[in-house]
């Protein structure tokens, strides 16, 4: 039994399904799902395109405990339709965030809901078969994240799945109080393939894996301040990082956004002229920037945690 638990804690987050991640992340047996698969809240649109639905539309939501403390949680299934935001999958996340907002604001008479929401993002963005509904769902999610944060709810994005966090998911991540990323976690707006298709292979060679990781991968995001914590690609890695970042989150107010304005303006003037990621890391003051790629977690975390740009409350 001990061995089982230990093995499970070391299982890859990248390879896991949404439900496996929830099992590995939360305290054992603590999760209660809302609108579970048996309720069959699924997409009313995919059949038009002759595509199979999923009983949960690719998003698992509910509540549980993390290190003994209550959390609300939404997990995207990156293997189903690329984890995309559709009408239903998006609305499930919106509802969860609104419930947290209302409870924290005293609006629905239930103040026992947790003041923390974890978003396990694994998404290429908007589901094109439901493009308008999906885009709007992202807009509603972003608004609901902000409203929840304003009421004192900590909203934390965890990114380390196969579909990464692109398009609307990339914007959603950056709307959260904190972002946890693994080396395998990729965050961006336009995916490398999309840029290559639209702008040509000279602009972005999506087949060049090393290039892709250096641009959108977790290490670059952590170093430039685009993510607040770096997790090992394991259940326990994400669990530990989530517990740590929940300890202190920035409030959502004018002061925070003015600080973010200064941070992003500073980054643009400092790093905007760099040709590649290694060039950026050099400007940031990393002594041997090409070595970043092969650094193990401890060495990398040691460097990232000392870097001014990477550690801030400006989000």
């Amino acid at each position: 039994m001990m061995e089982d638990t230990a093995t499970r804690a070391q299982a890859s987050w990248f390879q896991a399904t949404a439900r496996q991640r929830i099992d590995g992340l939360l305290d054992p047996g603590s999760f209660t799902e809302f609108l579970g698969p048996a309720e069959r809240v699924q997409s009313p649109h995919l059949a038009l395109f002759d595509l199979p639905a999923a009983f949960d539309d690719g998003v698992v939501i509910g509540r549980g405990t993390l290190d003994g403390k209550g959390v609300l949680l939404a997990a995207q299934e990156g293997q189903f339709m690329g984890g995309t935001f559709g009408e239903v999958s998006g609305a499930k996340i919106v509802g969860l965030l609104r419930a947290a907002r209302d409870a924290a604001g005293g609006g629905n008479g239930k103040d026992d809901l947790p003041r923390a929401v974890l978003l396990l993002l694994d998404s290429g963005g908007v589901r094109l078969q439901e493009a308008n509904a999906g885009e709007l769902a992202v807009a509603e999610v972003m608004r609901a994240v902000v409203e929840a944060r304003s009421n004192g709810v900590a909203v934390v994005a965890l990114v380390g799945g196969k579909s990464g966090a692109f398009g609307g998911a990339g914007l959603t991540a950056a709307t959260c109080s904190r972002i946890v990323v693994s080396e395998e976690g990729r965050i961006g707006v336009s995916g490398p393939e999309v840029i290559e298709t639209n702008k040509g292979v000279e602009e972005f060679d999506a087949a060049n894996k090393a290039l892709v990781w250096s641009v959108v991968g977790g290490k670059n995001r952590r170093l430039i301040g685009g993510a607040d914590a770096f997790a090992a690609d394991t259940m326990s890695g994400f669990r530990e990082a989530a517990i740590a970042v929940l300890g202190k989150v920035p409030p959502f107010d004018l002061k925070t956004l003015k600080a973010e304005q200064a941070r992003l303006a500073g980054r643009h003037s400092k790093l905007g002229g760099c040709d590649d990621a290694v060039g950026m890391w050099k400007v940031l003051g990393i002594k041997n920037p090409p070595a970043v790629r092969d650094m193990d977690e401890d060495a990398f975390t040691g460097i990232a945690d000392r870097l001014k740009e990477a550690n801030h409350d400006a989000r």
């Binding site: 399904t17 048996a38 639905a53 293997q79 189903f80």
Partner: peptide
């Protein structure tokens, strides 16, 4: 009472 296994994806099922 209930259980779910698998994911809807190409070559897979729930």
């Amino acid at each position: 009472d209930q259980a779910i296994i698998g994911v809807v994806a190409s070559g897979n099922l729930e």
